[in-house]
């Protein structure tokens, strides 16, 4: 069966017991399966608690970041790098609630040149996008996105990326771009925001992070590989 080798979430609570997700062990894994889901969820590194994502959304975000940033010899998976935590925190905070976004109406449909024109906050936009993606996936596969095998997840995201996935009344391509953007922000930003755990992405590309005072280094490392390990903002407080 195609599902056999999908990474699964740690099974924490029984069907219908979603409310008791707080009972967690050392792995601190409150993600719960959607009530109707048969397969067991899996262990990947996750936050102690989700700030805003509901269980279905958390499972979705984990599955997306693990597909966009798969575990391989270069880094652990996106969720193990904290990217799902990052997204949860961003959506729960000022950014997610639409800080600095002009939100007066009328809200009219624009051209792509006009940029974002919806009344939804980023939090609500992701809520709608996750629901639309899961609806679309369920129609084809009979289950939510996070329950798909790796190859199917990749194929689904590719269809969204190319704008071929038809979500009724919702742009799959735009939602894919939003997912990709926030995932990359989480993967590459300073670990203080919850993503890029252990500076995994910085180690991967050879970005030294802080303090980034290269006054002498621009000479010493002219045409030469820089070899110092990275440091985060947190290493300086």
């Amino acid at each position: 069966m195609a599902d056999d080798n999908i990474p699964r979430r740690t099974f924490l609570v029984g069907a219908g017991a979603a409310g008791s997700a707080a009972v967690t062990g050392v792995t601190a894994s409150p993600v719960v399966a959607a009530a109707d889901s048969a397969p067991a969820p899996v262990a990947t590194a996750q936050p102690d608690a989700w700030l805003t994502l509901n269980p279905t959304e958390a499972a979705f975000v984990m599955a997306v970041v693990d597909t966009l940033i798969p575990a391989d010899e270069l880094t652990p998976s996106g969720s193990a790098c904290g990217v799902a935590t990052f997204i949860d925190r961003q959506l729960a905070g000022a950014y997610g609630s639409g800080a600095r976004l002009y939100r007066d109406g009328p809200f009219l449909k624009g051209k792509p040149e006009h940029g974002y024109q919806l009344a939804l906050t980023p939090r609500d936009y992701f809520r709608a996008g996750i629901a639309a993606t899961n609806d679309w996936v369920r129609k084809r596969h009979g289950k939510d996105f996070d329950r798909l095998g790796e190859a199917e997840r990749e194929a689904a995201l590719k269809e969204m990326e190319q704008g071929k996935a038809e979500f009724p009344g919702f742009s799959s391509k735009e939602f894919f771009e939003a997912l990709l953007t926030i995932t990359m922000e989480g993967f590459f930003s300073d670990p203080i925001y919850g993503g890029n755990r252990d500076m995994a992405s910085w180690k991967m590309v050879g970005y030294p992070g802080l303090p980034a005072s290269y006054r002498d280094d621009v000479k010493t490392y002219f045409n030469k590989k820089y070899d110092k390990p990275p440091q985060s903002i947190a290493d300086f407080v």
């Binding site: 590459f188 930003s189 300073d190 802080l210 303090p211 980034a212 300086f236």
Partner: peptide, 8 residues
């Protein structure tokens, strides 16, 4: 420093 070096 260190907070200025925050791309996000």
């Amino acid at each position: 420093l260190p907070n200025l070096r925050d791309e996000l």
